[in-house]
Design a protein around this nucleic acid. Structure first.
Lengths: 167, 167
DNA sequence: CTTCTAGTTTAGAACGGTTATTAACTGCTA
DNA sequence: TAGCAGTTAATAACCGTTCTAAACTAGAAG
């Protein structure tokens, strides 16, 4: 897809702009993120690239992802197991996360950039912080899990995690 | 403060409504959360209650907090070290988090409930999820750290974390 | 008020995702 | 093309969180 090529090129340029070296590992990880929107975990990325880079180290994946997050090229999402998952941030969007199966789905809302600006502005005005970024996530049950759990959309009295079940 | 008494009472009633036992540990942890808005970590809470409950176990603090989060009485916030911090959710608000010192500050915006509804609605419409909650966080530099780091509000080219500094 | 039991707490071991360490390696600039 | 600052690999260490099993108890039932 031509668009993906361009997004990759932009991202690589961002690295150069910050005087960060463009290594094969970084290129391949970036390419993976541009071409996959599975919101992968570190482990998923590591395993997916095992054939292309047989000597790839976990630490390199962690380092590269942290680097890309710092550069704003990639964003970090909470995993249901307390771990993290990643997403190439090509177009402004936020995420819905299923509390039962952990699936993450993108939400592209036309007015989201404006909402972001409003949240940032109000935060800056009230607190004096110099705002750099924000996170928006919505939680719920995906359609599949609603079926699986026979949830009546009227009621919503389930729960998850915790040492003991809630009731 | 009379208002705090009432918030505590409401929270305890929520436990009863869900047939969850009101134990001394749960009451004391809840009281701590109602009366402190430090956005404490598990460790902070544990240490603060050490004198009141000498035999308190870490696991109990974890269990209680997870329970309260499930009940919607308390919300979970990301810590700068990858850990978690907690906040009693008495009135709708979101948070600004300092990327340098980790401080968390509340933002009470009059239109925040409406923004939440809008985010939830758009997510539900687009994805078919049954929405239960959401998280909104803004990141930046607190006023103190801006001074400490001599940041010119015009530029914003610092970074944090990662195995190696960025440049 | 007493009994009973499912739910809760405790203490500590275990787990697992992330970071730190250090030696070998290599993009990139001059 | 040489040289080095930045990067990677492999693995050990770290530490926040969860698990386990035995002791305990809040609250329902009689």
């Amino acid at each position: 897809m031509a668009n993906q090529q361009q997004l990759l090129k932009q991202a690589l340029q961002t690295l150069k702009d910050h005087h960060v070296r463009v290594t094969p590992q970084r290129q391949i990880i970036l390419t993976y993120l541009v071409t996959h929107h599975n919101h992968p975990s570190v482990d998923t990325i590591f395993n997916a690239l095992a054939t292309q880079l047989p000597n790839l180290s976990m630490a390199t994946v962690y380092n590269t992802l942290n680097l890309l997050v710092d550069l704003g090229v990639v964003i970090e999402l909470p995993n249901d197991n307390g771990g993290l998952r990643y997403d190439f941030y090509g177009r402004p969007h936020y995420h819905v996360i299923c509390e039962n199966c952990g699936k993450i789905t993108d939400v592209f809302a036309p007015d989201f950039p404006q909402i972001e600006r409003q949240l940032n502005q109000e935060a800056a005005d009230q607190t004096g912080y110099l705002i750099t970024s924000n996170h928006v996530e919505v939680y719920g049950l995906c359609p599949e899990c609603q079926q699986k759990l026979h949830i009546d959309p009227k009621r919503q009295n389930w729960t998850s995690n915790g040492q003991k079940p809630l009731s």
